[in-house]
Design a protein around this nucleic acid. Sequence first.
DNA 1: GGATCGTTCGGGGTTTTTCCCGGATCCGCC
DNA 2: GGCGGATCCGGGAAAAACCCCGAACGATCC
Lengths: 220, 220
Amino acid sequence: MTISVMVVDDHPIWRDGVARDLGEHGFDVRATAADADAAIRIARAVRPDVVLMDLNLDGSSGVRATQSITGELPETRVLVLSASGEHDDVLEAVKAGASGYLVKSASVTELVDAVRRTAAGDPVFTAGLAGLVLGEYRRMASAPADDQAPRLTERETDVLRLVAKGLTARQIADRLVISHRTVENHVQSTLRKLQLHNRVELARYAIEHGLDDGEDPDGG
Amino acid sequence: MTISVMVVDDHPIWRDGVARDLGEHGFDVRATAADADAAIRIARAVRPDVVLMDLNLDGSSGVRATQSITGELPETRVLVLSASGEHDDVLEAVKAGASGYLVKSASVTELVDAVRRTAAGDPVFTAGLAGLVLGEYRRMASAPADDQAPRLTERETDVLRLVAKGLTARQIADRLVISHRTVENHVQSTLRKLQLHNRVELARYAIEHGLDDGEDPDGG
DNA sequence: GGATCGTTCGGGGTTTTTCCCGGATCCGCC
DNA sequence: GGCGGATCCGGGAAAAACCCCGAACGATCC
């Protein structure tokens, strides 16, 4: 019995090339799609055994499409293709229900083999990724739920923003029209809440959490 | 007269698909290569009219290969293919002597047309890129050379990296096995060179210039 | 050999930050 | 009315950061 496949990729050359390769190796390429919405719609109608999903469709909507398809069609397995090395997206795809992962640098032989194994329900992962997924799982299991940010008051946030820009307590006091001792108190309580130790760590925290304005320290 | 083409890409599926597409459209695909060294060597022997060069070979060696080939073989034109949006690499490729640029999301028709025009000596640039190159040229012409980062010594860079992680002078001194006064001196000279005023600004500078290790301030 | 530069160490000073307090007002909530 | 939280102001003290200075050593270049 032939395996039905759907190819999703926004690069026409790649898409058609893969479709032809698979066709020549005995697969039934029922459909192709160039974007996430088309992929979801067509998959719903065609119900292929395997969806070959490119991860970097415009945006990272490949993940979204994977989620929709695996959610709606439990019989359909999604084999994710990626330009390799994009760890975050790949992990997202796995969470979204992808049955396997293959780098785009794979050969035709590897591709054909991977599609066969995916159709058979065999999870396909390149060497590096298995360890990556395991590591991520371990990380999640060990760190239960501490990632919720402590709540800063409005004033503390004001001060933090300015600290992250490199202003001293006196400069911040001038801007906010308060005493520099008050600024220092806000800094102190913020340090306690965030369990940090100095202004540099505060600045890093602000930058990583999008609290900074992204301006250059110098006059520009 | 047929146009001879060489295809350089580290993805076998893509490479062979493109080769086949071009072959079916009347081009003479003389050779393919998967990495920069092979590309240079084979191009030297084959002397194709057009080289289809993938920009993201391992590393950014696509630029290097482009430079070698255009330098050695003035008759051979290099048409660069890229996953799109990688402005820096594309500009590098243009500087390296590429005759044109095409995004990988192009259709087969566009590819065929682009190769024909490249062989005819007609520069091929997608809409966005022409403006990009012009803008870059204008920027270089107007701003002679003031945007170059001041040079920090190796030790200053070491200290900067650790400052950006939120360590105090004493902590840095312990790590580098020097006196904390020496650390403070390095901080001072770095502040002067970069025209900054305190450690928070140093941290921002380090982060924006990729000098930090991207670790969380807290224990994690 | 002399000049320059990077790296190291330190003196001596001011400013800022870090940390612990107490006290005040305002505002919402039980 | 009381209670807690947010905001504000301050004292005091230790640590750290900031700023300028000289000095020594080794390496490199002319």
